[in-house]
Nucleic acid binder design. Structure first.
Length: 312
DNA sequence: GACGCGTGGGG
DNA sequence: TCCCCAAGCGT
């Protein structure tokens, strides 16, 4: 959960998740849709699919691998996570290199080459950070101390070098460039894409939903029926031609949502219907408008549903 | 190595 | 409002 996600955002999800899936066996035995719904809102949903597959693999293996190579072979476990688990759970003296450790290392050694080109160099330099007997003796504490140093003192914008225990040996501090490291390659502009989604509410207060494809963006998550997300806006008539059913559609506003690599603007159309025809219902599935909480709805769709319901 | 993959908070 | 960033991974 903590991959690219803040501790604060993860907290409630983590506790709910462990309550629902208390053991690796319970997680392995769970339905994938239940895992996805427990993850809904947290983002990067491949993590949920990988974690589920990972649990099944661990159960099949009869337990957790306890070395870096074995952990690295599990779904969703890359170089960082393998090292973190090995150090924290199994006491293997390795240094997990996450964003914090990259930043600390770039400053300690004044690495001026920008990320991501410098990644290999930083990883190699970070390997030696635990050279001391004290660090070797306490791999878990050393890893977590590095994270905390990065999160508190050696922070991205305004590092508190005056309070840093490694101040004396920090090349970037000595050169007066700590706050400018690590350098990063320029970002590419984030394009805007446009879509339209449809919220239909029947007399029994049910809404029509459907499941997204198994691969790609928001894979296997739930959504309102709608158009593709494309570079050009959808004129109303063209959008309505793709509505899941004929109804008195009302445009009720635009949801703006930022993804990693594009911004999405969704025009939400809403309508009341007496009942869903079999044909309409066959295109997806029905769910009570009030009980949307247990579904695998990404945040962008939650926003669309709220906007649509407010207009009805 | 580059790109696809979410979301929310802070400055 | 906009940009940056967060205990990265898989293809």
């Amino acid at each position: 959960m903590l991959q690219q996600t803040t501790v604060k955002a993860v907290g409630p999800y983590y506790h709910r998740f462990l309550e629902k899936f208390p053991t690796v066996q319970a997680l392995a035995a769970a339905e994938r849709d239940d895992v996805l719904s427990a993850w809904a809102g947290l983002g990067y949903y491949s993590r949920a699919r990988n974690l589920h597959a990972c649990a099944q693999q661990v159960v099949a293996l009869g337990g957790f691998p306890q070395d870096v190579a074995g952990l690295r072979a599990l779904p969703g476990v890359g170089a960082y996570t393998a090292a973190a688990i090995a150090a924290i759970a199994f006491g293997v003296p390795v240094v997990p290199v996450d964003g914090n450790v990259e930043r600390i290392t770039a400053r300690l050694f004044a690495v001026e080459e920008p990320l991501p080109a410098s990644r290999k160099t930083l990883a190699r330099l970070a390997e030696g950070l635990n050279d001391s007997p004290e660090a070797q003796a306490r791999p878990s504490d050393f890893a977590q101390a590095l994270f905390d140093l990065g999160a508190s003192l050696c922070s991205p914008r305004a590092p508190a070098c005056g309070l840093c225990p490694w101040r004396e040996s920090c090349a970037a501090h000595k050169a007066g460039i700590a706050a400018t490291l690590p350098r990063k390659a320029p970002k590419v502009a984030r394009p805007v894409r446009y879509g339209a989604h449809f919220l239909a509410l029947d007399a029994a207060e049910q809404i029509l939903l459907r499941k997204r494809p198994e691969t790609g963006l928001l894979a296997a998550m739930t959504e309102l029926p709608g158009t593709d997300w494309r570079a050009d806006p959808w004129p109303e008539a063209e959008a309505l031609s793709q509505a899941p059913l004929t109804a008195d559609w009302q445009a009720c506003g635009v949801v703006r949502h930022v993804f990693t690599h594009f911004t999405l603007e969704v025009t939400v159309y809403a309508a009341r219907v007496r009942h869903f025809s079999n044909q309409a219902a066959q295109a997806g599935f029905l769910a009570p408008a009030s009980g949307v909480g247990g579904l695998a709805l990404p945040s962008v769709m939650l926003k669309c549903i709220r906007l649509g319901l407010k207009a009805l």
